[in-house]
Design a protein around this nucleic acid. Structure first.
Lengths: 339, 339
DNA sequence: CCTGCTACTGTTACCGCTAACAGCCACAAG
DNA sequence: CTTGTGGCTGTTAGCGGTAACAGTAGCAGG
């Protein structure tokens, strides 16, 4: 008489597989991890038993025993703005095949939330962390610094990284855009952006932008902020507000492509001559918008590349700190006058 | 002479905090988890020591010992299409305060990938799983079924759930849209969608749509598929192709709002009378697009609500299976003729 | 025959934490 | 004085795996 089927509600362990296949737990472990030498027949027996039982290894126990966790924490402010999904794609692609796996945490641009997300992630002892931005609470920086794992701060390099960093200079990006706008002959320039005190990158772009303006003896003739809601719609509304308040404005600089697109649609609907009477520019190089009637001027933020390089750094865990600056390209599109 | 500072590279354990504060590891554990009775002064001492050392608990060990993991696996096909981020928002909001935390896995609509994502997640012994769709490989279903945790399949209810399900009937959604279109007097109707054999929900919508057409004695006069690229741009291109090939088409039904928006912009640019000469409709109710010159007809997919209800089921872990059907509302917008 | 080596399998001791239980003390009640 | 009782703290024994090491057998070479 064979042993009765064990309680099917009991979660399986190596011991179950070991008993079912008549070898030690250690051998089962070796088979399932493809590590060490196991004879072909034994291997077959074990795999067969594991499959038959529907055994799923317990990584918690495995990780505790081996002191190795194949997870990489990724901390980003938001998933809904088109920029981070692309970064994630880069990370996933590069991690593929390294045995590492990304785990995402979202902070909604809240420093407190960031701190708790980091804490929570570190408590799972990941093999590395990728975090958007260089601005973190003191506690966050301290936790990361003493975690003893590679930390990569991404998107931005205007500041002091904890360890590694991959990104672009947003300050420079803002400056370059301003220079291009000025060179094209625009002079009465307004800024339209999000009201997010913790979007440091948007803030830096604006700083660089204003810096370049002031170097040319100019200042912003108007500015408008929004928060929440549909970006495209907000872009329309803000644009209407600015045009109404400052009718002689000749350029609108948006903090992102989505509100820029809303503005563009509004200007076209109003029959304004774009880019003759008025020019527009955004930021990000969102592929999503390629189908607009006219191509919005923008700067691509190298998102895919940033994801790939960050993941590469984690996978290779270089000894010394590493800072990689990428250089966005300005795409003038159809909304800046050509000389 | 005081003890020398311990190796700062050594990762901290409860023992370090226990030594630093002069109490047992157990008491430290109790303090850090707020469990059991600990005197106020002891509590203070421990917290102080933990903070000073920068101790981050090891959840791997904790989970193994307590057999409890505060993680909920969420398996979705994609992050870049505006639909799942909103579902995630619903999940996060509801999980907030339950002590549970979502962990996302992305499958890119690939069944093999889905299987490995599920396996990987289950190996961390989460407290529950939320998975998009009802179609999974036999192995996936088996793993989920015997994991002994609540499983919620979301988005769709046209099929047999493993356990719980929350979603809408996509077949019915397609049917309803067709009925509205027919009622508005359109007769020469084309379909434009994605070429994704594994997007079962889009497929079901189309089936329902055609079913309703045929009940009215109609068939699709044209169809066009695409894959990859910028959805807005593809929408334009596909629309151009259909209008070119079938000039007398009078309605374009898109499988999602994004390509629908591209089509809308194209039609408007061509000076076509929308919705007089030609009508358009999409699917999803993407808020993002609210800023378009004209509001595209669509059906909202109840994404936020689905996320919330799924999370609620996980948190409450009801005894019996539970299937929740939600009912999307048709938003006629400005692209279907009003009677 | 012994040695050394390779190929395979088993034993033991943890990994860092928590459940369960066992003290200990002060104080109230009998 | 004994006995409870509640508040607080410590001890012990795992959780389910894996690293490290310890066999064991078979076989080639001297």
């Amino acid at each position: 008489m064979t042993k009765p089927t064990p309680d099917p509600r009991h979660t399986l362990t190596l011991r179950d597989v070991s008993e079912a296949s008549g070898v030690s737990e250690m051998t089962v472990s070796r088979v399932l991890r493809n590590r060490g030498d196991v004879s072909a027949p034994t291997r077959e027996k074990v795999l067969e038993a594991a499959r038959a039982l529907g055994y799923v290894p317990n990584k918690i126990a495995g990780a505790l025993a081996s002191q190795r966790v194949n997870l990489v924490g990724v901390v980003i402010p938001s998933l809904s703005n088109m920029v981070f999904p692309e970064v994630m794609t880069g990370i996933s692609e590069t991690l593929e095949g390294t045995g590492l796996q990304p785990v995402v945490g979202v902070t909604n641009y809240l420093p407190d939330r960031e701190e708790s997300v980091i804490y929570e992630m570190l408590s799972w002892r990941p093999s590395g962390m990728i975090i958007a931005g260089l601005e973190h609470s003191t506690a966050s920086r301290a936790m990361l610094a003493r975690a003893g794992i590679p930390i990569v701060e991404i998107m931005d390099i205007d500041g002091t990284p904890i360890n590694h960093a991959v990104g672009i200079s947003h300050r420079r990006a803002g400056r370059q855009m301003a220079e291009a706008i000025i060179a094209a002959g625009y002079r009465r320039i307004a800024f339209l952006g999000t009201q997010m005190p913790n979007d440091f990158r948007a803030k830096k772009r604006l700083e660089g932008f204003e810096e370049a303006l002031s170097k040319a003896g100019l200042t912003l003739v108007d500015r408008e902020y929004y928060s929440g809601g549909s970006a495209l719609l907000k872009g329309r509304e803000m644009t209407a507000a600015v045009l109404n308040r400052t009718p002689d404005v000749d350029f609108l600089y948006y903090s992102n492509d989505m509100i820029g697109a809303g503005g563009l649609l509004y200007c076209l609907a109003q029959g304004l001559d774009v880019p003759g009477r008025i020019g527009l520019a955004g930021f990000n190089g969102v592929e999503l918008l390629d189908g607009l009637p006219r191509k919005l001027a923008t700067m691509d933020a190298c998102r895919l590349e940033i994801g790939k390089m960050a993941a590469k750094i984690i996978a290779e865990a270089p000894a010394g700190p590493q800072v990689e600056e990428l250089f966005p390209t300005l795409e003038a599109g159809d909304t800046i006058r050509r000389s």
